[in-house]
Design a protein around this nucleic acid. Structure first.
Lengths: 238, 238
DNA sequence: CAAGATCTTGGTCGTTCGACCAACTTTGGA
DNA sequence: TCCAAAGTTGGTCGAACGACCAAGATCTTG
């Protein structure tokens, strides 16, 4: 094989490993299978990675990073259509609806991708050294989702009645549940009906904002009118 | 080892395999590990099961059967406290709340159990011969949940505005999502807050029944007033 | 042009795996 | 009592695994 610097070979091996995991599963992702997929001898793998677990850790880092940007893109940017008058609350539900629908499109198009994510999550759970890492990854996802939710809510002229952090966590819970359930029964129509119920249910957590307060003080990200720090105080419905 | 008939040894091996899967994961569940856990020589395993995959299939059958009865017990029997007057709609939400809380108690008490279920689900997904089986298992779970939901709704004097089958599927989606999310971040308090939101959201799908129609015609299981056959017709809010 | 650093390669350990088998013991009915 | 069926046991086979290494090839720097 042509001479390759370590970082490039590292990337190639990670990409090959992701393909193998998606196609054959983590259990079948041996060092030899990865090397064969990457088209390089087995020794080259151990020249870059000290062990198989080291490579799999790098794989997990890569796919979780991609997972986070995917999570942020679930909520589409509402800038395209400025919110018209009336039925503003329904707009947020529609936003969630199209976002979840977009995710389901991706899921149905290449289920192996999500299966691979689930398998890697379980592998992480089984590896004591990485259990804490996973906790941090999910926390980051929630925190990355909060400003996206705040921006969407602001565009729809509504505000959450519960801490946005809980809404973000609820959204992740919903996406995870929709994924595993669809993977189990492959019922596309039922999954989309359930996704519609989920979108309506989450949208029901948002209340329309007073029109005079719409152009009010809260413009910086963080959404000060909906408990941005997501602390211990329980949701108090006014 | 003392002489054992095949069915008993079969049960013992399945139980041992379940313990190994919960403790060490599917990947570490080798024939030798199972035999050691059961305290019997390796040859005895292959005398009962033709192959490791055969044993794992039996394991999956056993745990999915247990999973179904667990799913039915998520909705506690409402017979203990006869519905008082007023706030009948809140009663159904409370029922869901306690049911989900009970499940979370179990999840936090022994997470290995649910991790094992997830691993076995993924193993089933990866095994082409069993992919169809899993579809059927989930369908059975939905169908088992429909009469439970119908009974709970009747006791709470309310009826679903969407097909009960979709509600059952939504409940399974919620439980799956709550499980995976808690396993990832281990945030018990946040999980229970999200579970409360889920319970409220599902309860919002039910509308109070007219008091004269409460003792009406629908007494047999199947709940004729809420689209029991879960067909294609979309939910029409009256 | 040297020489050290950086890659590349094929081969080889020791271990563990699933599957298999021949010999042995126990059981229960003829 | 005898004997076939049922059950038990320890050992062995080939294959695949992760890890490692020595030797060669190539690049880069002085």
């Amino acid at each position: 094989m042509t001479r390759l610097p370590v970082p490039e070979r590292r990337r190639a091996l990670i990409a090959a490993a992701i393909r193998v995991v998606a196609r054959d599963g983590v259990a079948a992702t041996s060092t030899r299978a990865i090397a064969a997929e990457a088209g390089m001898p087995l020794g080259a793998l151990h020249y870059v990675f000290v062990s198989r677990d080291d490579l799999l850790a790098a794989v997990i880092d890569t796919v979780t990073a991609g997972q986070r940007v995917a999570a942020e893109s679930v909520l589409p940017h509402p800038d395209t259509q400025p919110p018209a008058s009336g039925a503003l609350l329904h707009t947020f539900g529609a936003l969630l609806h199209t976002g979840l629908g977009r995710f389901l499109d991706l899921l149905e198009a290449e289920p192996e991708r999500e299966v691979a994510v689930l398998e890697l999550n379980l592998y992480t759970l089984r590896t004591p050294a990485m259990a804490g890492t996973m906790r941090a990854e999910y926390e980051e996802t929630y925190q990355a989702l909060v400003p996206v939710l705040a921006r969407a809510a602001r565009a729809c002229r509504c505000a959450s009645t519960v801490p946005l952090r809980d809404v973000a966590r609820l959204l992740v819970t919903a996406v995870d549940g929709l994924t595993t359930t669809w993977l189990a029964d492959r019922d596309c129509a039922a999954t989309r009906r359930v996704a519609a119920l989920v979108a309506d249910g989450i949208a029901a957590l948002f209340a329309p904002l007073a029109p005079d307060a719409a152009a009010g003080q809260g413009d910086e990200p963080g959404a000060p009118h909906d408990h941005p720090e997501g602390g211990l105080h329980h949701a108090d419905h006014p």
